[in-house]
Design a binder for these strands. Structure first.
Lengths: 202, 202
DNA sequence: CCTACCGATCGGTAGG
DNA sequence: CCTACCGATCGGTAGG
């Protein structure tokens, strides 16, 4: 693996864990196994590295968007879309942490990111819900756009603080505790149940 | 207002906005209108100030917990509990941001805070749901503890990134845009609708 | 509650 | 990709 890729990987991990401000270039350099000035040979500044990390994340997100838009046109669309989102963050929970930190640390930049990468498919999905409301297959009380945002809150919440809050789940079952850092399947199962039942008529 | 209180107020605001690591004692001192060493006269260290800010937040939370536990015993309990939580964070959205940052920046400390301040009433509420499931007034498919955690994800999400993501809500109505920094009522209304319908039978 | 100051660490640069 | 180094800022202290 080339050094540039290794730098992006370690920077992603550390930015997600401690935030951009909370991560020193020295820490990233140590994790990669190079000296600090070498980072600034590959990326002109910390801000440029930060931007590259976000670009990397968003390009991976854009890989699955076509699949999402395809799923919207099918019958079981919303289960499929939700499954795809959950799979995206399961593959690397750092993605959720990174997006959440960006939203609270730099709301202005995040608004720009959302307008570019979220508005399109959110609009398509909201229209799809409204059509289904018109022909009676989905609850008429659903506020389509607000509903989608609240589902996103659950998804992001599950993958950012899920590993922390799940100590509150009683593990009464005898089949061992979940692996450290992983998400309890009860959280994702309940998320899907809530999302489905709040949307579909009967 | 005495200086100590002013320091706690400004520290709360800045910690919520930029994180503890992202806030210099100098910034807090400037906001209060004193010199930096004066902060360290009132609080022995930045860490001690951070701890005091969290204590302040949790003591305000504990003020409403009795009201919450009382509401659980009533008929309209869950609407009332949710309204109380929404009111708590509406009074100061910094509370949500502070809690969320603590959860992602210091998961270990957050787990301790949750065990002390959340486990008790979460247990009471979960038992209340299970009893209602037994007598058929609530859906048997609800995973009580996981359900409560997902509702918390929506509440915290609404108050931390709601002001940012709500640019995605179409403001088709003619009654002006919402005030800057405030939460669009569509988000809280949909949150309450989703929470209610996912829980109650029929 | 202040002035004056400390060592450590920050992001970044010069030069090879 | 390295050594050597920069000014700025960090949390915190001495002394009044």
């Amino acid at each position: 693996m080339d050094v540039r890729t290794k730098i992006l990987e370690e920077a992603t991990r550390l930015f997600a864990a401690h935030g951009v401000d909370g991560t020193a270039l020295q820490e990233i350099a140590d994790a990669v196994g190079v000296k600090k000035p070498s980072l600034l040979y590959h990326f002109p500044s910390k801000e440029a590295l930060h931007a590259s990390v976000l670009e990397d994340l968003l390009s991976r997100w854009n890989e699955i968007v076509p699949r999402l838009l395809h799923a919207v046109a099918r019958e079981d669309r919303f289960d499929a879309v939700l499954d795809a989102c959950i799979a995206f963050f399961t593959a690397d929970p750092d993605r959720a942490r990174l997006l959440l930190r960006e939203a609270i640390d730099r709301p202005g930049e995040m608004r720009a990111l959302l307008s570019t990468h979220v508005t399109p498919w959110l609009g398509v999905m909201a229209e799809s819900i409204k059509k289904a409301q018109a022909d009676g297959s989905m609850r008429k009380t659903v506020d389509a756009e607000a509903y989608i945002l609240q589902i996103i809150h659950m998804v992001i919440g599950t993958f950012t603080v899920g590993a922390t809050v799940q100590v509150l789940l009683g593990h009464s079952g005898s089949n061992g505790r979940p692996k450290r850092g992983s998400i309890d399947p009860r959280l994702t199962a309940e998320l899907k149940r809530v999302a489905r039942i709040a949307l579909k008529q009967e």
